[in-house]
């Protein structure tokens, strides 16, 4: 059969690389074919999600930040300094977390979606016109965020003036200084040329952009055991590949940017410099619990527990590095590319 798979990015971007791997495995090991639809060709994220729910397409990438309007608990991925900062811990966490693979998976099923996989797409960075070392540096900075309450709250707490703007207008608005900042994972900053109209790239470690892969539930349940295994193996292969591919991707994007724009200043905030941002993030977590209630709190607690376990596994017992709170979500951007 032909399986249609819609992603939120272009073919060369992270989701495209994952989907291509998935496609290659499926086509090499069965008679099925996979057609990949890059971002925008079947609509925005909300549209492709719905298409998968209705069974018009079989697979979809849906970034949890967007899916927050469907499954509020998923907004946990937008929380600053919540996901592990160490990529190895993060990779282990996605793979082993029972909160994700059981609790959240059940929420997806209520929406006619079978959660296949969840993978990181790289650390979210801020690109700005002026240097950012502390929350004070964001005072008065009009910072473009996707209009979703938790991101707005995050940048409010960080001291910026969150400014909603359609994605198509962001480049022009930065160029004309209507806004002075935006956030996105590194590869996306590179591919959307955001660095051309900003001068500072800051690694604050507040989030890692995450995406989910899901299948239409009826379609998945209707597959033979053999095909189910095929899908799972293909996903596992693609996952391992993408985790590997991720390593150094941020650096690669950074190199490309430096080559295209030598004047760019890249700052990686030290643990100490991140502290005030971490403090600010606490309020955002409160807001999340406010928005999502008991169930959201359970997810957040589950995350913390699972992350501790992953940390112990990967870093070996003494999870004392203190670097665990990193970042998770800039759905916004990529999502917004579909806007």
């Amino acid at each position: 059969d032909e399986w249609k798979y819609a992603i939120e990015e272009a073919l060369e971007e992270v989701q495209g690389v994952y989907a291509t791997k998935f496609k290659e495995y499926v086509e090499a090991n069965s008679d099925h074919t996979v057609s990949i639809y890059p971002f925008g060709t079947l609509g925005e994220s909300a549209d492709t999600t719905e298409l998968a729910q209705m069974g018009a397409i079989q697979f979809v990438d849906l970034s949890p930040g967007f899916t927050g309007s469907l499954i509020p608990e998923l907004q946990v991925f937008l929380l600053p300094y919540t996901l592990p900062e160490n990529p190895d811990v993060l990779a282990d966490f996605y793979k082993t977390s029972s909160t994700i693979n059981e609790k959240l998976a059940a929420l997806y099923e209520q929406q006619q979606l079978k959660l296949i996989d969840m993978f990181p797409e790289g650390e979210v960075v801020m690109t700005t016109k002026e240097e950012v070392k502390a929350p004070e540096d964001l005072n008065g900075v009009k910072f473009r965020v996707m209009t979703t309450p938790l991101l707005v709250e995050t940048y409010n707490q960080f001291g910026a003036t969150p400014t909603p703007l359609p994605w198509g207008e962001v480049f022009g608005a930065l160029q004309l200084n209507m806004i002075q900042g935006q956030e996105n994972p590194m590869f996306f900053v590179e591919s959307t040329k955001m660095y051309e109209v900003t001068d500072y790239i800051t690694f604050t470690g507040h989030n890692t952009f995450t995406t989910a892969v899901a299948a239409n539930l009826n379609f998945y349940q209707g597959l033979s055991d053999e095909d189910k295994k095929l899908v799972q193996t293909a996903a596992d292969q693609a996952y391992d590949y993408i985790i590997d591919y991720q390593k150094g991707l941020t650096e690669k994007s950074l190199e490309k940017i430096k080559e295209a724009k030598p004047s760019i200043t890249v700052t990686r905030l030290s643990d100490e410099e991140r502290e005030p941002f971490r403090q600010a993030a606490e309020k955002v977590r409160q807001k999340y619990v406010e928005l999502t209630g008991e169930s959201g709190k359970e997810v957040l607690d589950g995350f913390e527990k699972d992350i501790e376990a992953s940390k112990a596994r990967v870093e070996g017992g003494g999870a004392s590095e203190g670097s665990s709170d990193s970042a998770a979500a800039s759905e916004e951007t990529k999502a917004s590319s579909a806007n």
């Binding site: 909300a46 719905e50 729910q53 209705m54 927050g68 309007s69 469907l70 509020p72 929406q111 209009t147 979703t148 309450p149």
Partner: peptide
């Protein structure tokens, strides 16, 4: 009707889509 079934809400206003 199917959108009603999914319970999707607008992120800011929290109005059912």
């Amino acid at each position: 009707y199917s959108v009603y079934g999914t319970g999707r809400i607008a992120p800011v206003t929290q109005v059912p889509i």
